[in-house]
Design a protein around this nucleic acid. Structure first.
Length: 257
DNA sequence: ATGGTAGAGGATCTA
């Protein structure tokens, strides 16, 4: 079973890239973030023609998440239970006995800003919910744009970024909480190339210079982590014309669906 | 020179 996640930065603009990528890699599941589409505008027909169904929750202009899959999902949830939040940032569904969550963590803008406060309030609600999900679903995969670079090796220039948003200690502490409740960073289950990143700013030739951060993650429960065979970042779509600023991350699991 | 680019929407906001 192949699982993947990709912040597409507008599914409307990126739909051709997404459909090509699905055809090439044939994942059972692709979590997407930043669809920037209301639900009535979601490209259900085009994805169905590509062999994928979708569960989604979106809004105009900002945010929006989805799970694309080859098989139908059940037990759909489109918000963190108990959290009052206008922004569409999570969607969950169950495929066989695998629970999948697509998540778009707030960016946080800058340390000390209102958006940073929102991020630091939002994240504990996510952790609390995931703890409950882990109790209910032993096979849990949480995938998406976490907007957190967990360690200095996930940052092209740790000195430049030290203490900045995406790298600050309070954010990294929450990421550690995610690991402490029983999730594994699937990318770090394996030996990886140095300077592996998933996001590069559009500006300043950041991609060409590989000035990136690893902020998109596939987190797996213990049961799924045990069956994980590989996890890799696919930089190829970032090299296309009009790319997303994020690259997809894909994991292969020894699980039959 | 606190810059630069992309998306949405139609002036800025967000990233």
């Amino acid at each position: 079973m192949k699982l993947a996640t990709w912040n597409v930065n507008s599914l409307k603009v990126r739909l051709p890239h997404v459909i090509d990528w699905l055809a090439q890699h044939q994942p059972e599941i692709l979590c997407v973030q930043e669809t920037k589409l209301t639900d009535e505008n979601f490209p259900v027909t085009e994805l169905a023609a590509a062999g994928y169904q979708a569960i989604f929750t979106g809004q105009k202009t900002y945010n929006g998440v989805a799970i694309l899959s080859k098989y139908p999902g059940i037990e759909t949830v489109t918000a963190i239970p108990g959290l009052v939040d206008e922004q569409k940032r999570v969607v969950a569904a169950t495929y066989g006995d695998v629970r999948v969550i697509s998540v778009y963590v707030p960016n946080g803008e800058a340390v000390g800003s209102e958006k940073y406060q929102y991020k630091l309030a939002w994240l504990p609600a996510l952790v609390h919910w995931l703890k409950q999900e882990l109790e209910r679903y032993p096979k849990l995969a949480v995938m998406g744009d976490f907007n957190i670079a967990p360690e200095d090796r996930d940052v092209h220039d740790p000195v430049l970024w030290q203490g900045s948003v995406l790298c600050s200690q309070p954010e990294r502490d929450v990421f550690a909480d995610l690991l402490n409740i029983g999730l594994s960073d699937s990318f770090r289950l394996f030996t990886q190339p140095e300077k592996s990143y998933t996001w590069w700013d559009y500006r300043m030739m950041a991609f060409r210079l590989n000035r990136g951060l690893r902020i998109d993650h596939i987190l797996l429960s213990e049961q799924l982590a045990r069956s994980c065979l590989s996890c890799q970042i696919d930089k190829a779509p970032r090299k296309l014309e009009r790319p997303s600023d994020h690259a997809p991350v894909m994991a292969e699991l020894n699980v039959i669906t």
